Amino acid sequence: MILPPQHPLSAGLTTDSRLVRAYRGERADTTPVWFMRQAGRSLPEYRDLRVGTRMLDACLDPAMAAEITLQPVRRHGVDAGIFFSDIVVPLKLVGVDVEIQPGRGPVFGRRYDDAAAIAELTAIDPAGLDAAAAPITEAVQRTVAELNETAPAGRETGSTPLIGFAGAPFTLAAYLAEGGPSKDHLAARTLMHADPGAWAALMHWTAELTGRFLRTQVLAGASAAQLFDSWAGALSLDDYERHVAPASARALSFVHDLAYGTGVAAGEPDAAGSDAATQTVPVVHFGVGTGELLGAMRGVGADAVGVDYRIPLDVAAARVGAGVPLQGNLDPALLAAPWAVLEAAVRDVLRRGQAAPAHVFNLGHGVPPETDPTVLTRVVELVHEAGA
């Protein structure tokens, strides 16, 4: 499917942005940078805006979600916005009983850890998300419209892309099986072996739902998509490849057919018999503690791979294989270190990122809420200077 002409990629607004070029494996004038969890948490303007509003209510308020997404772009001059939402939003939209408890995370009305509970859950049609996703579409459209009207210093108006995001099927399934957060995700790992049929049904359902959530954001104007697998690091490589990777591949398939360029569908020849001018929307896949899974995570259909802080980027480059752009991977703890220590670490990440054909500087996990925002701004300036 070709994206509509007004989409930032089809209109040529973000196609040559630092971020999109990096995800395609090209290096631009400098290394692009954005931060996971940059939208919110550490920003005082975010905390002021959120007073009296619960997390999921904020996610489903289009004006608020757009404003929160834009705040770090304005303040830090990052090379991309990351859509402000939560991985359980699609679950909420289709009627699953879930709330985000401050200090704890997503908590469900029940556990989905046996065949009967999973049968009840999967009786909900994931396609129902399409009809319920109007707040997401509006929020993305608002954000993109604002990005099209403003630009950080030295950048063309409209050239800052928005990244859509969704939780990977395993991470959603881990929360559902446990009924909330878990340190070891034992319920999910037990279910995949004790009842493979129920596990497969749960994974297929979460893949369909989160894939549609990601597709909604791209159709509304996001120029790239990231799949977050927060808890995949709890798995062995064999369990990931056998019980998880097919579902992640299915989730990403909802984006893979979205293309921009010549006006023909991805993979179909144009009038001249070539499809070289057609590009698909870039996809990046990130997981926490997934150093042993990086190659398999790339294999589910990712154009670029996000790397957490536990493994150096040059080592990660060897594990994902030749020609794969990388994203990452400064340890968030270093944001509170003395500037000399932090600067050396940033430069080291940039140096190791040269092992990949292209590199998007990021953290190896999310921004800690107590981070001084001026430090993030200073890191952006350093990356742009040192990564030139």
Results as ranks from 00 to 15, higher is better:
His365Ala: 01
Leu3Phe: 15
Ala174Asn: 02
Ala386Gln: 11
Leu294Thr: 08
Pro32His: 12
Leu219Thr: 11
Gly180Lys: 03
Leu376Gln: 00
Val255Leu: 03
Glu120Lys: 13
Tyr112Asp: 00
Ala117Phe: 09
Asp184Thr: 13
Leu214His: 11
Ala220Met: 12
Gly211Asn: 10
Thr206Ile: 06
Val96Thr: 12
Pro269Phe: 08
Gln38His: 02
Ser274Arg: 15
Glu99Asp: 12
Ala58Cys: 00
Gln327Val: 02
Val89Gly: 11
Asp184Met: 00
Glu381Gly: 04
Arg189Ser: 05
Leu363Arg: 07
Arg250Thr: 04
Val89Glu: 03
Asp114Glu: 10
Asp275Leu: 03
Leu13Ala: 07
Val367Tyr: 06
Val315His: 13
Gly77Ser: 13
Gly353Lys: 03
Ile87Val: 12
Gly109Ser: 14
Ala356Cys: 05
Arg310Gln: 15
Pro102Ile: 06
Gly267Thr: 01
Pro368His: 04
Thr69Glu: 00
Gln327Asn: 01
Ser17Leu: 02
Ala153Asn: 03
Ile311Cys: 03
His193Ser: 04
Leu56Phe: 09
Val379Glu: 04
Val264Lys: 09
Tyr112Lys: 04
Leu60Glu: 11
Gly323Ile: 07
Val341Pro: 15
His359Leu: 05
Asp372Pro: 10
Arg298Met: 12
Gly158Met: 13
Val140Asp: 03
Arg50Thr: 10
Gly179Lys: 01
Pro282Met: 05
Ala151Thr: 05
Ala80Gly: 15
Thr216Ser: 15
Ser223Gly: 14
His76Leu: 14
Ala119Gly: 15
Met1His: 09
Gln38Trp: 00
Asp125Gln: 04
Trp34Thr: 04
Ile118Glu: 02
Ala277Asp: 14
Ala22Thr: 04
Met55Arg: 07
Ala198Gly: 06
Asp29Ile: 06
Leu294Asn: 01
Thr374Met: 15
Gly109Glu: 14
Glu343Ile: 11
Gln101Val: 11
Val20Ala: 06
Arg310Cys: 13
Gly364Leu: 07
Thr190Glu: 08
Pro325Trp: 06
Val20Lys: 07
Pro126Glu: 04
Arg110Asn: 14
Ala259Ile: 02
Ala222Trp: 09
Gly211Val: 15
Met192Ile: 01
Gly154Leu: 00
Leu49Trp: 10
Ile311Asp: 09
Asp257Tyr: 01
Leu334Asn: 06
Ala333Leu: 05
Leu342His: 10
Val288Cys: 01
Leu129Phe: 02
Thr171Gln: 09
Gly301Lys: 07
Pro338Arg: 12
Thr278Asp: 05
Val320Phe: 07
Tyr309Ser: 07
Arg310Tyr: 14
Ala66Leu: 00
Glu381Leu: 02
Leu219Val: 04
Ala115Leu: 03
Leu172Trp: 01
Val288Thr: 08
Thr290Ser: 04
Val367Lys: 05
Thr190Lys: 09
Ser236Thr: 07
Ala131Thr: 11
Val324Met: 13
Leu43Phe: 05
Val283Cys: 11
